[in-house]
Simulated assay, not measured.
Amino acid sequence: MVFHLFGLRALEVWLYSRLIRSPIFHQMVGRVHRRVEQIRHGIPPEESRTKLEGSGSLDKFVRYFKEEIQDQMKGKPRNKL
């Protein structure tokens, strides 16, 4: 009987460690936490800052980055703000 409980405990520890190391689990917990905070504090859902809206955004970034590198190579970085 004792060995049977030991086997179940070992299985529980193994499953727990797999769950904790899973990135999908952490994403799910993050979504639940964000939703609970929105409900508790009435904060509107924020837009994801990591998504690129269409392929045009990437093209604009690459063009801007290229201009900045060229300006710095010339020794005259410009203030674009």
Rank of each mutant, 00 (worst) to 15 (best):
L58N: 02
S48G: 08
D71N: 11
F65C: 01
V29H: 13
R34F: 03
H41F: 13
E12D: 07
R21N: 15
E12R: 12
E37D: 05
S17G: 05
V29A: 15
M73D: 10
M28R: 15
K60L: 11
R63T: 10
G54M: 04
D59E: 07
Q70V: 09
M1D: 13
R35H: 14
S17W: 14
G7Q: 12
N79S: 04
V62P: 01
D59V: 10
R9L: 10
R21L: 14
E37A: 08
R63K: 06
I43W: 06
K80M: 01
M28W: 14
K74A: 15
Y16A: 13
Y16Q: 13
K51N: 09
S17P: 05
G30L: 06
K60M: 04
W14R: 14
L15C: 06
E53H: 02
L8Y: 01
F25Y: 12
Q70A: 05
E47S: 02
Q70G: 00
E47D: 03
F25W: 09
F65L: 04
F61L: 15
E12F: 09
L8W: 00
F61S: 12
R21Y: 11
D71H: 08
G30H: 08
I69Y: 02
R18E: 03
S48T: 07
F61T: 12
M1A: 13
Q70W: 08
G54H: 06
G56K: 03
M73P: 00
E68Y: 07
G75W: 13
Y16W: 14
A10L: 09
T50V: 06
V29N: 09
R34A: 13
H41Q: 10
T50A: 05
K80L: 02
R21D: 15
R18T: 03
I39M: 09
R21S: 14
Y64V: 02
E67Y: 09
L58T: 09
Y64N: 03
H33C: 12
I43C: 03
R78L: 08
I69K: 04
S48C: 09
K66Y: 11
E68W: 04
R21F: 12
V36Y: 02
R40S: 02
I69A: 05
V13F: 07
P44Y: 03
R35K: 15
K80W: 05
W14L: 13
E68K: 08
S55F: 00
K80H: 08
S55G: 01
L58V: 05
Q27P: 02
L8A: 00
L81M: 04
P23T: 10
R34N: 04
I39A: 12
S17C: 10
R40I: 10
Q27H: 10
K76G: 00
R78P: 01
K76N: 07
S48W: 05
V29E: 14
I39W: 07
L11H: 02
Q27S: 13
H4L: 04
P23C: 11
V13R: 14
H41C: 09
P23A: 11
H26E: 11
E46Y: 02
V29Q: 15
E12N: 10
D71C: 03
R34Y: 03
R9V: 10
M1V: 11
E46Q: 10
L19K: 09
R31Y: 13
M73Q: 10
Y16L: 14
S55Y: 02
G56E: 04
E53F: 01
R49P: 09
Q38W: 01
H26S: 12
